[in-house]
């Protein structure tokens, strides 16, 4: 069973959240707006990685099309904004409904397959979305879409400043972590984890696993869509490129180097991925070469991912 992350490394996790909580203040004090920007992005992608981990790490469903939901979420901000509709609740509900529907339809088909076929079919569906947005001239096609203002919420939800934006992202991150923490320990979670290890056995125990897996797939897509809404607000420029299947590959990488099936792992993975990418590109223009090598080393030697190393430190 996925190891109960609540026991051993709880101090590491709380410390991590504390650091993330005070980071904007440190950055402001040291006057590093760029780092705040990078960290905000990292947390958004982190939420997307957490959502992917729900199906990949806990459910054993390796989707190579998960960024489609990130993109759909972002376009659910971008397209209404294009028509001067900035109501945040409209953006949010549009993203939730669209992601849930798309996940329900594509999941219903994809989950009929297993293994490599599942990977290929999820990739095919996300490429469909990618090419649809690529051909939508009205919404900028491959030039992308500029979002001129952030989603508008009641006054108490203010996303205008960089720091308040960060704290809304941080808030959704905490919510997502708590939600997944509860979910994987519930009856539903047990069925999902069980069907990852032995789907046939779960069916023979009376579980119609298809329905449970589909539900899990939809939940994961909706969380990723919410991350997309944040991304759309944060970057203020969105393009189909963010939905290309290579992006989904990166997301899988983040989950794996962070630690599949661990609660915090994918967040660590996403943050290290983005910071490493940034740091290496400062050093040399051939950074892809070093980055690729590092990733290979991490996958080869880093069993259990970053989360597993942290657990060892905590022993």
């Amino acid at each position: 069973m996925a190891k109960p992350s609540g026991t051993r490394s709880v101090k590491v996790y709380l410390g991590m959240l504390f650091l993330l909580g005070i980071a904007p203040l440190l950055f402001q004090w040291t006057n590093q707006p760029f780092l705040l920007d990078l960290l905000s992005r990292g947390l958004i992608i982190g939420i997307a990685a957490l959502s992917l981990n729900l199906i990949l790490g806990y459910g054993g469903m390796i989707s190579l099309g998960h960024v489609a939901y990130l993109g759909i979420g972002a376009y659910c901000v971008g397209i209404p904004a294009y028509y001067d509709i900035y109501d945040g609740w409209i953006h949010l509900s549009l993203a939730v409904v669209t992601c849930a529907l798309f996940a329900l339809i594509t999941g219903a088909v994809s989950l009929r397959t297993k293994g490599v076929y599942f990977i290929m079919i999820t990739m095919a569906f996300s490429q469909m979305i990618y090419f649809i947005f690529l051909s939508l001239e009205e919404y900028g096609a491959d030039d992308g879409l500029v979002i001129y203002a952030r989603s508008e919420f009641p006054v108490w939800i203010n996303m205008e400043g960089a720091i308040s934006m960060y704290y809304w992202i941080f808030g959704l991150l905490i919510l997502t972590l708590f939600f997944i923490h509860r979910l994987v320990r519930s009856r539903f979670g047990r069925v999902i984890i069980g069907s990852k290890y032995n789907d046939l056995r779960m069916q023979s125990l009376g579980f119609n696993t298809y329905g449970y897996r589909l539900t899990c797939y939809v939940i994961s897509a909706v969380i990723c869509g919410l991350a997309g809404v944040l991304l759309g607000n944060f970057t203020s420029f969105i393009s189909p490129e963010m939905m290309s299947w290579t992006r989904s590959g990166e997301l899988i990488f983040m989950v794996i180097i962070g630690g599949t099936g661990s609660l915090f792992g994918p967040l660590f993975g996403a943050l290290s991925f983005l910071f490493l990418e940034e740091a290496l590109s400062l050093i040399t223009i051939y950074w892809h070469l070093i980055f690729g090598g590092l990733l290979i080393a991490l996958v080869l030697f880093g069993k259990g991912g970053i989360d597993a190393w942290l657990s060892k430190l905590d022993k």
Partner: peptide, 18 residues
């Protein structure tokens, strides 16, 4: 417990820890 859970109706219960 999985066996018992399988016999006890649906498992669309998302919140209470098993």
């Amino acid at each position: 417990m999985l066996g018992v859970q399988g016999a006890q109706g649906h498992s669309y219960r998302f919140w209470a820890p098993v």
